[in-house]
């Protein structure tokens, strides 16, 4: 591996880690949106029964 290839590998790793972490936050947020929808449906069902 040439000297520059290590530099490229380091920068690729840096951005991959950062974007990977941001992607994991985005997935958590999607999961929360699904949970909110489920809660909303449950409350609406409850209100309809009353």
């Amino acid at each position: 591996m040439s000297n520059t290839a290590y530099l490229v590998a380091a920068y690729v790793f840096l951005w991959a880690m950062l974007f990977g972490y941001l992607y994991s936050i985005a997935r958590k947020q999607h999961a929360l949106e699904r949970d909110i929808q489920a809660l909303r449906r449950a409350v609406e069902r409850e209100q309809a029964e009353e």
């Binding site: 591996m1 000297n3 290590y6 590998a9 380091a10 790793f13 840096l14 880690m17 950062l18 972490y21």
Partner: peptide, 21 residues
């Protein structure tokens, strides 16, 4: 703490990539 792990992983791996040559 999560971000600390992310950034220390970057520091460890980039350090290793710098150490090799």
């Amino acid at each position: 703490a999560e971000l600390g792990v992310v950034f220390s992983t970057i520091a460890l791996v980039t350090g290793s990539l710098w150490a090799r040559p």
